[in-house]
Nucleic acid binder design. Sequence first.
RNA 1: GCUCAGGUGGCGAAAUUGGUAGACGCACUACCUUGAGGUGGUAGCGCCCGCAAGGGCAUGCUGGUUCAAAUCCAGUCCUGAGCACCA
Length: 712
Amino acid sequence: KEWTDANVTYMTKQLRSMGNAFSWDHAARSTDPEYFSWTQWMFTRFFEEGIAYRGTGIVNWCPGCNTVIANEQVTSEGCCERSGDQVEKREMPQWMLRITKYADRLIDDLDALPWPEHVKEAQRQWIGRSVGAKLSFELRFERHPEDNERRGPHGEKAAIPVFTTRPDTLFGATYLVLAPEHPWVTLATDDAHDVLDNKDEVRTYVDEARQRDEKERTDATKEKTGVELKGVKAVNPATGEEIPMYVADYVLAGYGTGAIMAVPAHDERDYAFATKFGLLIRQVIDTDGELPVTTAGKLINSGEFDGIASEEAKRAIVERFGGEPTSTYRLRDWSIGRQRYWGVPVPIVYDPEGNPHSIPKEHLPWTLPTDVDFKPTGEPPLAKSVELQERTERIFGPGWTPDVETMDTFVDSSWYFLRYVDPHDSDSFSSKEAQRAWMPVDLYFGGAEHTTMHLLYSRFWQKALYDLGLVTDQEPYTRRVNRGLVLGPDGAKMSKSKGNVIDPDREVERLGADAVKMYLAFMGPYGDGANYPWDMGGIAGLRRFLERANGLRAHVRTTVGDDIAVLLNRTIAKVTGDIDAYKFNTAISALMIFQNAAEKDGLTDDEYCTFLRLLAPFAPHLSEELWHEAGKTASVHEEAWPTADPALLEESTVTVAVQVNGKTRGTIEVPRDADESAVLNAALADPLVGPKLAGERKRVIYVANKVLNVVL
RNA sequence: GCUCAGGUGGCGAAAUUGGUAGACGCACUACCUUGAGGUGGUAGCGCCCGCAAGGGCAUGCUGGUUCAAAUCCAGUCCUGAGCACCA
């Protein structure tokens, strides 16, 4: 905490030195007990609602961090997003948040958000919704035919449910594949059951598959492997055929039902598998192309459904054969338990029978004990705390034990914006009045790396709170802009090892905060992951601009021409519009254009002061100083923003391009809003372009005040 | 492989209800100034031909629509990002 506080203090100082106008009294720190007691309280509410639960499953274990991490924190190479170590799969109990329950809303609510399309698309893909159906395949046992008619507790026959997005290809399903971890495989290979002819072979395959690491297993390019489950068949509900069953690791246990109906004619993976194992390939979608064909089409070899198009056939076949329309998701529940010391303790205690109970509000914050070694070893450090154990028994009674995990730090950051709007409330984490006044966040800047982590988590968190009636909005952020990085002068990402790190403090000291701030605004359009190298010359140019601004007062006159007034008004309009659109680079360029003209033609004292007001947001320090030198007493930053005079926005003459057959041949000056014939006459009379218009004019197009195109 | 974003001078970039491509800044060149070496002034600066006037070419590439295309359409290549045996 001391370390964190020192960093916060340092960064606060840096931000202040840049002249940024933040509301510092609205700050919140997730490490403050006052803050994290609310994090814990929300967790207990989620626990009571079943959103937070202790589940057992396959989790990602990072050997470098010695802790479990969430799916989102694993990179596409299967490495830890923090340490870069290869992640291992382990099966262990974990605290989870039921984010999958919100999958549909997290996707569907994106449509209405004015976010960049690529950010929304990345979230959609991460959630990975597939719309399809569940279909059931009954089993036939060759060793024990009497089992074929045996029914389960609900009168159902033994069957394997599969998920498919292509129920229209059901007639082409010529075998079934189960994942190695599929519960039925586990059942069929245990000692108590005798349904397989090749139990040992299947066991060996399953064991090998489990041992293979994730990366190797999910390599789509490797050759398919698998083993037939001999002695058992599945029945295709459409054809009534008995079809073979396989166990193969190209089917994933964690997706859909962990089992698939294989349609080799219309799925590349099934095709590869069927070819290797010599299985029946039956085409059921009409096509001229070579198999496998995965596109939709008209059905063939499908009995009564022949000739029907895929989309319609999907509905009809699902209905006819007792399927259940359903969606599955790539998204997994969010695993939040961490075997670390640093973090917010999970606010759960266990009674002597081992049942979890949430810690009541009056005992929050549930703080970290101080009597443990916090180096991560793999065992949760809190498990060794005598202090924590004693505290638990003192409050809840003998035999009670504390939960010993801490929460993922992404939990802390999932609701901080709600505290910003009401940082000192002690009755709630954020009052409804404050939320109604401030939420949702109008504009959220952040890094692209948060697209499938923080941004997804905090949207889920907001929706979960919304369902509990605790927040006013379903979405936390209105607009989103992904910021880019400032790169080193060599164009590479700044890093100490490359020696290309620019220290902002030193640049501020060398050239001034205003120059640094303006350079950052001027280097390019802000957002959408645009990265810019730090250009030493570039920032010098901004310094130059500011020095000239410093000397601009010398050009103040009592009488000046009209042109500068028009230019000033256009500048006001341009800067105002650009600020609204976050196009700071072109706003600054407009200021430069005005300054260049003012130095040349002079300007009035009024115009000078208006310019200072326009400059104020970009160069807060210099503009304030010049404002006072100009004899003003109040702060320039409290002045009203200038408004453009519409009467002075447009010059009395305009430059019109003269084109012949669409090619620009010159320009002429004409009065604004002159009519077409006047402009044409002016063009014909012009000594430079006039001769080029000689000949029969087939057509003349005049775009008011812009272009005169003559077709010869 | 799928999805998304993007390709404009030596560089960062402007410009889209289709209407003078390259504003503004950096770098560069020349001259001036100056006690000169990352912070003065003036001018030039997309490419090609030309002393110039002028002309030709030009917004990744190829076609198309149009009086007119960086902008719209089709195809294609390249770069970046995300996902990837997800049924």
